[in-house]
Design a protein around this nucleic acid. Structure first.
Length: 214
DNA sequence: GCGACAG
DNA sequence: ATCTTGTCGC
């Protein structure tokens, strides 16, 4: 059984340990089902609500979904987000009638201070390939991204490429893509673009967001 | 010491 | 993330 009640320092130590098991190259077969993962809060933050929506590829039609509610155990601490959200997400994933082949997570993956964002954490614990899709930057620097759709720039941190800043829709705010587990950065960007239609975020994540918040 | 800071 | 009303635009 995995312990989730850790002190910030213990959580940091665990990240340093688990990061060593992360695989940043493609290690998966054909992707038929892709899932979007997101988390919301109710009851003034006392309840954590995780939502997962599975869509068929490339149709992007919903084939399964699940919601899990748990008492919120930790506050939000930049860099330790996964310890707050992952437990509820795991419960939601277990309820799915159709297991996914790939995970699109709302938040950073490798683009994290210790290279272990929530996408990495979820990928490692489930064994599933995963990708981090964040709406805001946590760390790193990058050159300006031109306004047209598809425009992108590498995200750097300490001389290392940790992700891609992507303009998924023309003239719309950029998103931050990084590999989670068993998916390389290039493939991560391809899957994000392949599951995006007419909005800023990939459809699976948009659908999960609706379930987690609406 | 002073900012920055996924959701 | 959440708290919150109206408003501008397709």
């Amino acid at each position: 059984m995995h312990s989730w009640d850790l002190t910030p320092q213990q959580a940091i130590n665990l990240q340093q340990e688990l990061r060593q098991q992360i695989i940043t190259t493609d290690q998966f077969g054909p992707v038929r089902y892709i899932a979007g993962v997101d988390v919301g809060f109710e009851d003034r933050g006392n309840t954590t609500r995780a939502a997962v929506v599975v869509m068929a590829c490339p149709e992007l039609e919903v084939v399964a979904s699940a919601i899990a509610r748990q008492p919120t155990r930790l506050p939000y601490i930049p860099g330790l987000l996964s310890f707050r959200e992952v437990p509820a997400v795991l419960e939601a994933l277990e309820q799915l009638a159709q297991p996914p082949d790939l995970l699109l997570c709302d938040g950073q993956g490798y683009a994290h201070p210790r290279r272990f964002g929530i996408a990495c954490h979820l990928g490692l614990l489930t064994g599933l390939p995963s990708i981090g899709v964040a709406k805001k930057r946590l760390i790193g620097t990058h050159h300006d991204v031109t306004p047209e759709r598809g425009s992108q720039q590498y995200l750097f941190h300490q001389q290392e490429i940790i992700g891609v800043v992507l303009r998924n829709r023309a003239h719309v705010k950029t998103i931050y893509v990084s590999s989670g587990h068993k998916v390389c950065l290039e493939s991560a960007v391809q899957w994000v673009e392949a599951t995006t239609t007419r909005y800023r975020l990939p459809e699976p994540i948009r659908a999960a967001h609706k379930l987690a918040s609406g």
